[in-house]
Amino acid sequence: MLTRFLLRRILTSAVQMFALTLAVFFLVRLLPADPVSRLVGMNASPEAYAQAQRSLGLDQPVFTQLLNYLGLGSKSGLLQGDLGVSWLTNTPVVQEIGMSLPITLELLTYSFLVTLIVAVPIGVMSAANPGKLVDKAVFIYGLFGGSQPEFWWGLLFVLIFFSTLGVAPAPLGMIDPLMLPPPRVTGFYTLDALIAGDFAAFADILHHLMLPVLTMVFVLSGPVIKMVRQSMIQAHASDFVLYGTAIGLRRGTLTNYALRAAIAPTLTLVGILYGVMLGGAVLVENVFALGGIGQYAVRSVLAFDYPSIQGIVLVITAISLLIYLALDILYALIDPRVVYS
Rank of each mutant, 00 (worst) to 15 (best):
Q230P: 01
V219C: 04
L191Q: 08
D204S: 13
P183S: 09
T190M: 12
A246K: 02
D204M: 10
P169C: 06
A237S: 04
S147Q: 06
G146E: 05
F144R: 07
V224H: 02
G197E: 11
L209Y: 15
I247V: 15
I225V: 12
W152S: 02
L180D: 08
F162V: 05
T253R: 00
P149S: 03
R184F: 15
G197M: 11
A203R: 12
A168N: 01
G146L: 11
R251V: 10
K226F: 07
S221I: 10
T253S: 13
P183R: 05
L254R: 04
P183Y: 13
W152M: 08
L155Y: 14
G166K: 06
P182G: 10
L211R: 00
G173F: 15
I225C: 08
G248C: 07
V185M: 07
T245G: 09
M179S: 05
G187M: 14
T215W: 01
L214A: 11
Y243P: 07
L249D: 15
K226R: 02
S231Q: 05
L209N: 02
Q230W: 05
E150P: 02
A246S: 12
H207D: 10
T253W: 14
Q230R: 06
G244D: 08
L214Q: 07
L249K: 05
A193D: 10
V185F: 11
A193M: 08
D204V: 12
M179A: 10
L194N: 12
L155H: 07
H236R: 09
G222M: 10
W153L: 06
K226A: 00
M174Y: 11
I175R: 01
S231L: 07
M227I: 14
F151P: 06
K226Y: 04
Q234F: 12
L254M: 11
S238H: 03
L172M: 12
T253K: 04
G146Y: 14
A168S: 06
V167A: 01
V241R: 06
T245D: 06
D204G: 08
L249Y: 15
A196H: 15
A170H: 06
V185S: 04
H208M: 07
V228E: 01
S221P: 06
P212I: 12
V167K: 01
Q148W: 13
A168V: 01
T255E: 09
L214M: 14
F157E: 03
P149V: 04
S163H: 09
L156K: 04
